[in-house]
Structure formats: structure tokens, C-alpha cells
């Protein structure tokens, strides 16, 4: 009996993945990641552990991720926490059951922010949506509800035609 239980635990252990450590990324490497995703839409959410609205909307992005076909919508999180806050970032992601590769903003903030959008003030939360070619389709600052997020994504899934 012990032998059987032991083997079952062994198999279970094989399935457990360690919580990924956030990877430091600048703008061009994030854009590279976006293009590598095999998805029609790539949603990039900028957040921080200390940012209350970011933390409040985080589960909506997780829900979007789990309820979407990964070929249609891919969700990527980029934390703007400070480097000395990595343990807090890892702990938060673990609590959210977010085990995908995750990123942290690196380099000079001024250049980083302006590379994403000239109008982005640097405030978080901020979300950017790209197509598979890395072209930016939408961007917003501030918290969204799940319904608002789903509505924005659905609108982007349906291309506008020239005649409209």
C-alpha cells in the first residue's frame, strides 16, 4: 500500500512546476515576446503589487486568459515593481495561481514608457493590446471591470471593415 501511495506522490510531484521568477524586460524585448506569441490578440497588462486598482483588476485578466482560446487571446503581465520587491511579486503571482512566464519593466522608465505610447503617462494600471504582428490596437490607463475588459477584447476581435 505504501508503495502505491509513494508512486502516486512521485507522479504528482513530476507535475508540479516551480513559481517562475519574473524576467526583466525592456520595451524591445517585450515587443519581441508579443510577436512570438501565437495569438491573434496579445493583452499586456502593466501592474504593481502596491497598486490597489492593479491588484483589483488582476483576477479579471486571469479570467480572460483562462476563458479564452490561447490562439485568440494571450495575456501577458509586466510588473513595474522595484527590483527589491521581486519576492512580493512572486508571492502575489503564486496566490493568483499565475504560473506563466512573467515580466518586470527594466531600464530607464522615461524611455520605457514613451516607447509604448506617447500618451501613456506612466500611470498604472495600464493595458495595451497588440495583434500578432506587434501592432498596437488599443491602450487604456486605469482599472477595468471584467465586463469592460471582455467588451474591449470582443470589439478588437471583430475587425472594422472599410465600408463602416
Amino acid at each position: 500500500m505504501r508503495y502505491i501511495i509513494g508512486l502516486i506522490f512521485l507522479f504528482s510531484a513530476c507535475r508540479t512546476e516551480a513559481q517562475p521568477v519574473p524576467e526583466m524586460k525592456d520595451y524591445s524585448s517585450i515587443l519581441g515576446e508579443i510577436k512570438q506569441r501565437d495569438a491573434s490578440l496579445v493583452v499586456v497588462n502593466f501592474w504593481a503589487t502596491w497598486c490597489v486598482p492593479c491588484v483589483e483588476e488582476f483576477p479579471h485578466f486571469i479570467r480572460l486568459k483562462t476563458e479564452s482560446d490561447p490562439k485568440e487571446v494571450s495575456v501577458m503581465f509586466v510588473s513595474v515593481d522595484f527590483e527589491d520587491e521581486v519576492p512580493a511579486v512572486v508571492a502575489f503571482l503564486k496566490k493568483q495561481h499565475m504560473q506563466d512566464r512573467t515580466f518586470m519593466a527594466s531600464g530607464d522608465a522615461n524611455t520605457f514608457i514613451q516607447s509604448f505610447h506617447k500618451s501613456w503617462s506612466g500611470a498604472v494600471p495600464a493595458t495595451f493590446v497588440y495583434n500578432r504582428m506587434g501592432e498596437q490596437l488599443d491602450f487604456w490607463e486605469g482599472k477595468v471591470t471584467y465586463e469592460q475588459l471582455a467588451e474591449k477584447i470582443n470589439r478588437l476581435k471583430t475587425p472594422k471593415t472599410q465600408s463602416q
Binding site: 501565437d38 491573434s40 490562439k71 505610447h117 500618451s119 503617462s121 495583434n131 500578432r132 504582428m133 501592432e135 498596437q136 490596437l137 488599443d138 491602450f139 487604456w140 490607463e141 486605469g142 474591449k152 478588437l156 475587425p159 472594422k160 471593415t161 472599410q162
Partner: peptide, 23 residues
């Protein structure tokens, strides 16, 4: 591996959907 769908239409218009007051 699945086959990648064809690229999106070039008619997609980039937009900024949040409320931002001009700096």
C-alpha cells in the same frame, strides 16, 4: 502545434480608449 490563422485585416484602427486629458 496548430496552424497559425491568417494575419488580421489591415483595416484595424489603433485607438486609445481611456480618458486621458492632454498634458
Amino acid at each position: 502545434d496548430a496552424q497559425a490563422p491568417p494575419p488580421q485585416s489591415a483595416n484595424l484602427v489603433p485607438q486609445v480608449s481611456s480618458v486621458i486629458y492632454a498634458e
